[in-house]
Amino acid sequence: MPQLQLSEETKERITKILDISRITLHYGYLPLIIYLGYTRSDPKPTLIRLISPFA
């Protein structure tokens, strides 16, 4: 197997970027989908119907 040489500094930086993107994905992905659906739906739903499970 070819060994890939990464310096400690680069490794740390990549780990940090991955950490941040993981947190963004964790808490940002569902709101992103709801935002996309809310703005592009046809007909556009009312906000109260979007949030409440019973309305």
């Binding site: 996309l36 659906g37 809310y38 592009r40 739906s41 046809d42 007909p43 739903p45 499970p53």
Partner: peptide, 16 residues
């Protein structure tokens, strides 16, 4: 499960 379909094209639904 409460599923609500808001739109079909594009498909958009939310499920609680």
């Amino acid at each position: 499960d409460f599923q609500k379909v808001f739109s079909l094209a594009p498909l958009f639904r939310i499920q609680h």
